[in-house]
Structure formats: C-alpha cells, structure tokens
Write a protein that binds this DNA or RNA. Structure first.
Lengths: 352, 352
DNA sequence: CTGAAAGCGCTTACAG
DNA sequence: CTGAAAGCGCTTACAG
C-alpha cells in the first residue's frame, strides 16, 4: 500500500490537493467541520462533540489522511520525535538500548532520531544541536561524556533524560542509573564464593562514571572478604575487546599470581578470553573469567561467559518511558532492575 | 555551547526574534539583502555576486544562524534527510552498515533516519510510510523482505537504493549487491584447499536472496572439485546463533561424517562453535569452521573465526553515496568490493 | 464547543 | 542577479 505523497515540491496554489496529497482541509470539508476542529481532534486538544469526532474519524479513514509532521512541527512546536544521542549506532551494548527505546517510543506514537556522539563530549554537543535544530521534543542521552552541568543547561531548553549516571532530577531532567557498584560487587562476590582470592580486575575507561563504580564494587567486595585490593592486579582497559586481550598479556607477564579475572565489561572479557587462549590458559579450569553487561554474544562465547546481567533493552524502554512522562508534564518515576549475575561456564571453583 | 532554540511554541508575531531564535530575515537584514537571496546562497540555488555572498556568510556566522529544517522541508519539499530501513537497530551486521551510512550522509550535510523492519515485509512497508510522512528525500533499504516490485513502485515516488539484491536499476532506483555467491565459493574453496572433502553447510534463511546465493556458491565450489553436493550435509538455519548450535547437533546426531563446516553467516558459525564445544569437538583440530560476514566479534572468538570478509561499513558508505548521486540527479555508479576470505584460526588441514 | 485568521520559518515562481 | 509575495500544511490564540 503506497500512500500518495509528493516526491517533488508540489506546484503552488493547489489547495484542492490535485497532486494527490490529502490535507487537513480536505478532511474538514468531507467531515463538514473546520480544519481547526480536525486538528483539535487529532491532537486531543479539546473536547469535541461525539458526532463530530466520529465524522472526522471517518473522513480521515476514508481519505487516508496522514498529517504532515513538518507542518505540524513548524506550526505547533512539537514534532512527536525524540532524539537519542548514542555513542555509536553499531555498539553491541547501546544497540540493545536503542531497540528498547524504539519500541517504547513507537508504542506512544513517537519516532526516535538516533545520532552518534562517538564517546566525545564535543561531538555529543553537536549531536544535541542537530537534534534541537530538528526540533525534537526531547533528548535521551545514553551515558555520554557531556558534563552534568552541560546536561542541566540543555534541560532548561528541552526535556532530557540521561542514562548511566546519577543526577538530582530537576524539572525537565531525569537520570536513570544502573547499580554498577552493586553489579561489580556481585561479580566479585561470585568469584569469592568459588574460593578465589587472587582476583584480577580489568578496568574500564576511567572517563566513564560507570567504569569507576565497577572498580569500586570490585574493591568493596574484596575488602569485605578481608582481602586487600592489590593495585598490581588492576589493569587498565577501555571497554574494547583489544584492551581486554592486552590486559591479560600484562597480567600474565608481570607474573603475579591470580586465579580469576573480572573484566569491567563483556567486550573486554571476550578479549581476555582470547588472550588466555593464546597463552594456553584454559577457562575456567586454569582461570575463571567473569564479565559485565551480558551481551548477546556472551551467551555464545566458548565457553559461555559468566557475567552480570545489564538489561540494556529494559533500560532503553525505561528511559523512553521517563521521557514520555516528562513530555506529559509528569514527574518521571521508573525503577531500574537490580543487577544479578548470570552463571554460565567461564567461572569455576578455585584450584589455586 | 547551547544555541538558542525555543522549547515551547514561540509566541506569535515575533518577527524580530525576541525569543532568541535567529531566522533568515534577520541575517538578510544584517547582510543588507533580501531573505530570498540568503535562501539562495544557503541552497546554492543561484549565482550571486561575490560581495553579497560574503556579506551573507558573515551575517550567518555572526548571528549563529541555523536554518529550521521543518520550515525548509515544508517550503522546499526537501528535508536533507534520508530514511534507512534496517532490520533491527541492534543487529551486529547491519549496525556496521548503519554506521557507514551515517558517516557518508553526515559528510554531505544529510541526516539519517533509522527505522526497523524486523525482517517483515509488512513492517518494512510501514517503515517506508513513516519515512515518507517525515518527508525524507530518499530511502535506503538494507536488504529487506519487500518484493522487488514493491521497491520499484516506491522508487517512482522517491529515490530508493537497496542493498543485498540485484535489480535492474531504473530512474530513481539503484541496487547494490555483494557477491555472495563468490564469497561462499571462496569459503568452500578454502576448505577444499585444506584437503576437506566432507564439508557441511549451515544454510541461512531461504527467504533471504543472499542466503540462497551462499548456498549456490557452496555447491558450485564442491562440484567444480568433483564432489557431489550431499543434501544430508546441508542443514537449515536462520542466521541466528541458536540455529547454528542446533545445526551442529543435527549434523552430529545423523552420524554422517564431515570434517568441516561452512556456516552461511558468522552468527551461526559462532553458535556452531558452541555446539561443537559442547560435544567436545575441537576447532579446528577435529572440525574446521568457517563463517561469512566477518563481524567484529568473530575476530575475538575462541578460536578466532576464519570467515568471508563482508564489508558492512563500506557497503553502507556506498549505499549512501549512491543515494547522494540519485539526489543530485546523477546516475549512480559505485563498485562494491569483492569478497575475500580472512584466514584466522578456526580452519586447518583435514585430518580425515 | 467551534471557526476564521494569523502565523510557524523557510523556498520559489514571478517579475523585474 | 535580486525582491516582494505567495505558499508549504498545520496549530492555536482570539473571538464567539
């Protein structure tokens, strides 16, 4: 079914829609009301008598009328679209969040507009400018590098919800945070429960608040088990696979014993698994390995990766729900699921 | 830097922009020309004297003027945006293509608008309607289930470029195809070169033309080596990891010997690797395994997966380039890279 | 509850 | 080469 929309600038002065596009005025005529009334019904903007509403609905159906979003945006100031600044459209983690957002928005009649910030505050700022110039009704920022301050400033101009950080919510601003600290604590505790004592940690990019939280959670679990957090067992990473592989090299080369490793995200854990394989260390027999995020790929790693479940899709859905609430003028309130560890086959009791 | 855009419907009759939004009329005033001239300069629509052009450029810079895309779209019929119907915003393969498209479009001043068809022709049709109602200037369809016929029909209304199939290009229509047949032939040949004779094939969803091409390539390679294409060694899959795992079970259970398996995509190959692991078959020692697509994750599989390089990012870039050419009224011409096999560690000489 | 009219911020024939 | 004017398709005060 191809609706009839013009591909070229329509000839001017064609009020009657001789080019095939049906406009609000036509449905008004058919329904025997004014365009204003049709508009109000479309937007639920006023109480209209049942009879008229019915007539209008029928006219709309009959003509196959679809409001022009551009005109709507120009005239009304809303576009029924919300911008999402993600880090990269091909990120395995954010992809899940994008999908969740898309679903929730779609169900409410809104469209998502995705732009990529590439882990760079300046680019993210540019993204938001693009989004604003497109007159999105609100912006969802997935983690991002923008300062809290910048976010607060943006929130004065249009609703923003941000994931991956804790922010005192202000009017027009809502932050959604996953308990990264607790997730990391649980991961480490899982290893502890298996008898591991020398547990290495592959850290995430310290520019991410979540990376720091995970680091803190790791240390906290260790300490509450009476184990000092050995700095030599904490190696830097950047959340990418390659850094996980390199971290393992470094760990192995420094010849400081360890029986398990906790990588701050699955991508690094996967890289670490490869590094271990290259050095002929078996997982989990020789070394136990746990990640964080529970990416789709992790369930199919060899061996399947034990990890902390981080429900990206659900977080996306919740972020969208919060945005929708903001847009309705409500104070958002959503509850982010607590972390849990998914035990698969990359962790085993310590033989150390 | 927060540019000043209104978050609320601006009060009416504010020609002078007292709310902070700078509009074309203001730059016209500052530059000492008419709004028409500014518009023409913005759009490269007419030859304008150097002096005026300079004055206008300066005024734009000084005021920080950013054209309103909605107004532009309404008045001019173009939106400088192109719609992309992808299958899912979190697909590991299409993600790469989306990223390539985003880059190429961005460089030309266009914005991408992503929508997901979820491997379903009806949804894809709905996507295109949404895109058209948003007045995108063109649509890029990533593979998709839409019939060639439907695509041709859409192309009459607005430019469309489609990847993953061969289509006689018509005005406003351009198809970009990767040589799936050749890629599959190469993959199979690689196995043959290693001495394998009993090579199983995990097929993709037959609803995808590319899946069929890959199947054909597999058989062709076998036959040209004088080996009959044994139907018992061809098991169905659906391009998802799980189907690869199940395919291995089936293959192993039917007790028909094979020394290598070619999965029609990496996701299934990864699932197959897990299946093999579960049955204690070592890759590549017991069974050689090759995939298709060269996903990011495949380089970090254990062992790293040998596969056919399928440059999603580049294909995305080329699709965008073709769209840009179409938009300029040119006949698109882009050349898709030929397939090649990336030899990693999941294939080895046959011990059979 | 409902219309007529103005306006959203641009672009583009139409006339110089 | 350049302006004045109309128009893109809606929404929303403003008046009933």
């Amino acid at each position: 079914m191809i609706s009839r929309l013009p591909s070229k600038p329509a000839p001017k002065s064609q009020k009657a829609g001789s080019d095939g596009v049906v406009k609000i005025e036509m449905v008004a005529k058919v329904a025997g009301v004014s365009a204003s009334t049709v508009s109000r019904i479309l937007n639920g903007t006023a109480i209209v008598s049942e009879a008229k509403k019915k007539a209008v609905d029928e006219a709309i159906a009959q003509l196959g009328f679809v409001p022009n979003p551009m005109a709507r945006g120009l005239a009304g100031g809303r576009t029924l679209s919300v911008g999402i600044v993600t880090q990269s459209v091909d990120s395995p983690f954010y992809g899940g969040a994008m999908r969740g957002i898309e679903e929730a928005l779609d169900a409410a009649g809104y469209s998502p507009l995705f732009v990529s910030g590439h882990w760079n505050a300046a680019e993210e700022a540019r993204c938001i400018d693009v989004l604003r110039s497109r007159r999105v009704d609100g912006v969802i920022v997935l983690t991002g590098r923008l300062s809290d301050q910048a976010l607060r400033a943006y929130a004065k101009a249009l609703p923003v919800v941000v994931t991956g950080r804790s922010l005192r919510s202000a009017p027009g601003l809502y932050a959604l945070n996953f308990d990264n600290f607790e997730g990391a604590r649980l991961a480490t505790q899982h290893l502890l429960d298996l008898g591991h004592r020398r547990i290495a940690f592959i850290a995430g990019d310290p520019a991410h608040p979540d990376a720091n939280e995970r680091h803190r959670g790791y240390c906290a679990a260790l300490e509450s088990a009476g184990i000092a957090c050995d700095p030599a067992l904490v190696v830097p990473g950047d959340y990418q696979e390659e850094s996980g592989r390199r971290a393992i090299e470094q760990l192995l080369d420094q010849r400081r014993p360890f029986t398990a490793v906790f990588a701050a995200n699955d991508q690094m854990a996967l890289g670490a698994a490869l590094g271990l394989y290259r050095r002929s260390m078996r997982v989990p027999n020789d070394i136990s390995l746990i990640g964080f995020d529970d990416l789709q790929a992790s369930a199919y790693a060899v061996p399947p990766l034990t990890t902390v479940h981080h429900p990206a899709g659900e977080i996306g859905r919740l972020a969208a729900a919060a945005m929708l609430q903001l847009l309705r003028g409500e104070k958002p309130h959503v509850v982010v699921p607590a972390p849990s560890v998914i035990v698969r086959e990359s962790t085993w009791v310590s033989m150390g």
